[in-house]
Amino acid sequence: MQYRRKQDIHMSAVAINPLNRAVRFYEAPIGKKAVMAVTGVMLVGYVIGHLLGNLQIYSSDPQQINRYAAFLHNPSNALALWGVRLILLAAVVLHIVSSVQLWQQNREARPLRYYKKADVPTSYAARTMLWSGPIVAAFVIFHVLHLTTGSILPLHDIGPNMPDVRYNVVSGFQNYWVSGFYIFAMILLCMHLYHGLWSMFQSVGISHPRYTSKLKKGAAIVAILIAIGNCSIPIAVMAGLVTY
C-alpha cells in the first residue's frame, strides 16, 4: 500500500504548439466528449435544417418540395452540396469514432460487473445512448439508401437533377414497414437528442445551478419537436393527408 512517486506530470516537457494541444485534447476523454458535443451540434443543426426542408411537403403548392429538391440538386450548387455532405460525413465519423473509443475505455474501467445493479432514477435516454446511437446510425444508412440512392424502392425523377421527392416520399411511406421503421427511429432519435442536447452543454462546460434545469427542459422540448415534425410525415401519408 505504500506509494511514493515523483510527480510525473511535467507539462514543461511538452513544447506547447497547436498540434501538441490538439493531440493532448483528443487523448483526454474530456476532449473526446467535446468532439462529440461539437459534432453533435453540427448534426443537430443538420437535422433541424433537414426537417425544415421536409416540412415543405405540407405546402399548399404540391410542387414546393420538388422545387426545393431541384434547387439543392442544381449542378451549380454541387460544390456546396458535396462540401456540406463531406463535413457532415466527417462529423458523423468523428462522433462515432470518439463514442466507440470512450465506450471501450469505459467498459474496461469496470472489468467485473455487479451481481446486482440498480438504475437509480436517471433518464432512460441517458442510459440507452449506446443503443439509440447505432440504431439511429442504421436508420440514416437506410434513409440514404431509400431516398437518396433509391436502393430500396425505385425513385422517380421529374427531370435530370430534379427528383420527384413528393412521389418518392408518399410511395415509400405508404408501405407500413417503412413508415414503422421511420417512426421507431425517430423516437430513438428523440431520446438520443434529448440526452445528447443537454449533454453537449455539460461536455463543453456550459452549466450552472441556475439554468441546468432549464437546459434540460429546453433539450427535451427541441428533441420532442423534432420527433413530432419528422414522425408527422409518415403518419400524414398513411392517414391520406399527404398524397401524390
Partner: peptide
C-alpha cells in the same frame, strides 16, 4: 472511465 453525463 469517463463521464457520459448520466447522473447516477
Amino acid at each position: 472511465g469517463s463521464c457520459t453525463n448520466i447522473g447516477e
